[in-house]
Nucleic acid binder design. Structure first.
Lengths: 219, 219
DNA sequence: ATGGTCTCGATTGTCAGCAATTTTGTCACA
DNA sequence: TGTGACAAAATTGCTGACAATCGAGACCAT
């Protein structure tokens, strides 16, 4: 609905896919919501054919579920699978954290510490949005520093699937107080160029995330 | 070419995708080989539209590369990326091996040991095909035992991408002699219900695979 | 021979329309 | 009121035709 259609511009299938991906990430469309081809086509100013192929892409990526003759809906990821995803992310982000610790330069280490300080400040000021931003930056920077493109792509895809749980978590009161020391431990280990320590700290952090997700669903 | 078209049966897009996946795995089509839509349509007895969506799927999976107006080709995975893939697989299969060690029953342990004995016999008899079969069974069984569906799917997808290097490796003389003890160590740790040991043994095994791949390309 | 331009064939990309299927709405009847 | 049958609407699935694009080879001038 928020999406206007610019007349004249031809919107490709991958552009449509990107828009839908964003809409899912932002929570504009919720799990199990139907994605009607004709509606999307009008909303994004694309042909139905392009919308169709976009939905195909998203199905392979695991964001969308399709049933024969019944159309596409946003896939609803069950708790059990979300925990699996966090487990896999733990393995991969631990790998990345270790590699990052091996490769980080002094300038980059200072940048990482700055993120840590910003997150501390955010917790002190109770600024949830700033904390979430720092969280994203931290994980993103470690993945970038690792130079592991395959792991990066895999993590991205998995995170997109579990976005609903991530969202729940970040708005949970007291969550940042708990995770801040975990994040600082990761930063410390990476800046100390301790690969094993960094990997361990990352695994512990994501184990705590898994636990928090489980608790947040119990309510 | 080997693929005949059964007249009368309607071949769906995912069936075509499966056939092409097989063809890539089996080495019937080689990297950089063009995949012409009309040819595939005739070979598999499908419409061009179905072939098109199949190629779309495979592109998202990373098996196929598409260039605007120039069609699809089998993606050629560079060495550097193949090593990244093995690294990611190491992290994920180590996770699976650990979980398998936690969950394995006595019956399953005996089955695992049987695979180990078969692999020993294959090396003794110089039966490369049997060894490769055991290798596949072993890794597959550990992944299944772990119960980690997300990791399983990810590993599958990655392995399909790097299949060319796997193939090179298995035909390399002396390779099985080197990897047999690594495999046996994994089996032993899993059957001893030692998760950390199993994970470590798996990581070491895949580090050795990475090294062997690098060497095999240098020639 | 070399380089440039042009044309043609091969191939991909796109669309509109129709067929098939599911869902929704209506109505008669117990 | 509830239920089943049936018609109508909505939606997806598919195909065939056409437009757009690219590469190869012919042809020509230098």
């Amino acid at each position: 609905m928020a999406a206007g259609s610019r007349t004249g511009t031809a919107v490709t299938a991958s552009e449509v896919a990107a828009r839908i991906r964003e809409a899912i990430s932002a929570g504009d469309v919720v799990p199990n919501q139907r994605l009607v081809e004709a509606d999307l086509a009008e909303a994004y100013g694309a042909s139905r054919g392009h919308v169709r192929t976009a939905l195909g892409e998203l199905t392979v990526e695991g964001l969308v579920e399709r049933i024969q003759n019944r159309g596409a809906r946003v896939r609803s990821v069950p708790l059990e699978e979300a925990l699996e995803i966090v487990e896999v992310r733990a393995a991969l982000e631990a790998l990345c954290a270790g590699r990052a610790a091996e490769r980080i330069t002094e300038d980059q280490a200072e940048e990482l510490r700055a993120i840590g300080r910003a997150m501390e400040a955010a917790v002190r000021d109770g600024d949830q949005a700033a904390y979430a931003r720092g969280n994203t930056e931290l994980h993103g920077m470690l993945i970038r520093l690792s130079g592991q493109r395959t792991a990066a792509a895999t993590i991205d895809r998995l995170r997109a699937q579990a976005v609903r749980f991530q969202y729940r978590l970040s708005t949970r009161p007291g969550r940042s107080q708990q995770s801040l020391p975990e994040h600082l431990a990761i930063i410390e280990a990476v800046c100390a160029r301790d690969p094993d320590g960094a990997a361990r700290a990352m695994r512990e952090h994501l184990a705590s995330v898994a636990k928090a997700i489980e608790e947040s669903v119990r309510d």
